[in-house]
């Protein structure tokens, strides 16, 4: 999910570049850079990495209500640093941005929170695990057992998540390459959450249950200048397997793709550039833009050929940096459900 970071950087870091505080290339001035040999350590890596410029805790859930309807929930906390490291009080260089969304087949609720680090309004800690901005929280004794809450002006949710599978390092042992030029991030996921809880809608509350997926990623490097946008999917297939995939769209019309097949047993198989194919099959006008809300996804190595359809094509995140993010239904060779994120349109 690097593209959000890219946009975030455009706001927060672009002036830094302009002032010459940081170079454009990989070696972000003073910040740590992802290195291929790094071994992820838990629970420490559940907490923040203030020496890296950007980081996020990104949770999506595909839910079904007691009313028999499908719902989707997103809870994200972004961290971005104006300078490496942490400091006390308002002098902290860490900035936080929370996004929460609740999608129904007809409606899409969004809320956004901005906060500064250092004073306690927002932050993250590894053990006991807690990530928060304002009253929004993702917390538990451990990542495998968490409570999740968020509120907007007209919606809210309280969910409990428990993992029945292992953490999955993406790419090569958690080192995920994002371009042919070598830009990369540290990236791991917990795709095996069982979810139960309550959604608060203007009409009233609904109890729900379903599946959840947490992504953890941190890096310091921006994308290549030629990369325009990003289409990312996380799929829960009915047979028990999971699929993470993304394609980075480049200005010359080509794409850079990557994916990970996660077996029901928790075995992860990464696929490099070109193995995964993503083709738009249905477009819709959303928020004044033309967006592909239906996709054909092929992974020939696994015999996968599925079609994704948005539960609600209007899943537009009208936030400071707007993008599309919402639940999808999966049909074809491997039916299931999942989440789709599209940026740069």
């Amino acid at each position: 999910m690097n593209v959000k970071a890219l946009i975030l950087w455009l706001l927060l870091a672009a002036p830094l570049w302009a002032q010459g505080f940081a170079g454009l290339g990989g070696g972000a001035e003073g910040f740590a850079t992802p290195s291929p040999g790094t071994v992820l350590e838990f629970p420490a890596d559940h907490g923040p990495h203030p020496d890296f410029r950007i980081e996020w805790w990104y949770l999506t859930a595909n839910l079904r209500g007691a009313d028999g309807r499908d719902y989707g929930v997103q809870w994200t906390l972004f961290r971005t640093a104006l300078a490496p490291g942490e400091a006390e009080g308002w002098q902290s260089p860490q900035l936080w941005m929370g996004h929460a969304a609740l999608t129904t087949p007809e409606r899409h609720f969004v809320a956004e929170r901005l906060a500064r680090g250092g004073v306690g309004q927002a932050g993250a800690q590894a053990a006991p695990f807690e990530v928060w901005v304002d009253e929004w929280r993702m917390a538990g004794p451990d990542v495998s057992e968490i409570a999740l809450t968020a509120n907007g002006a007209d919606f809210g949710y309280d969910l409990n998540l428990s993992a029945d599978g292992p953490l999955i390092p993406q790419g090569a042992g958690g080192y995920s390459v994002k371009s042919a030029g070598g830009q990369a991030s540290h990236y791991y996921s917990q795709p095996f959450y069982r979810v139960a809880g309550t959604l608060h809608l203007p009409e009233g509350s609904v109890s729900v249950s379903g599946q959840g997926w947490l992504d953890r990623e941190w890096s310091s490097q921006p994308l290549e200048a030629t990369q325009e946008g990003w289409d990312w999917i996380s799929l829960h297939l009915d047979e028990g397997a999971k699929l993470m995939g993304f394609q980075l769209r480049q200005s010359d019309g080509t794409t850079y793709t990557s994916g990970t097949w996660i077996g029901a047993d928790g075995r992860a198989e990464p696929f490099g550039d070109g193995a995964l194919r993503m083709t738009p099959v249905e477009r819709a006008a959303v928020a004044g833009r033309d967006l592909p809300v239906g996709w054909r996804v092929e992974l020939p190595g696994r015999g996968l050929d599925v079609t994704l359809r948005a539960l609600n094509p209007e899943s537009w995140m009208d936030t400071l940096f707007p993008y599309w993010e919402g639940p999808v239904r999966v049909g074809g060779s491997h039916p299931g459900r999942g989440y789709l994120e599209m940026t740069g349109y």
Binding site: L11, L12, A13, A14, P15, L16, Q19, F21, L82, A83, W90, Q91, P93, R116
Partner: peptide, 10 residues
């Protein structure tokens, strides 16, 4: 103005 870092950082 866009220069949020400059505004926040001593």
């Amino acid at each position: 103005r866009g220069d949020l870092p400059g505004f926040l950082t001593p």
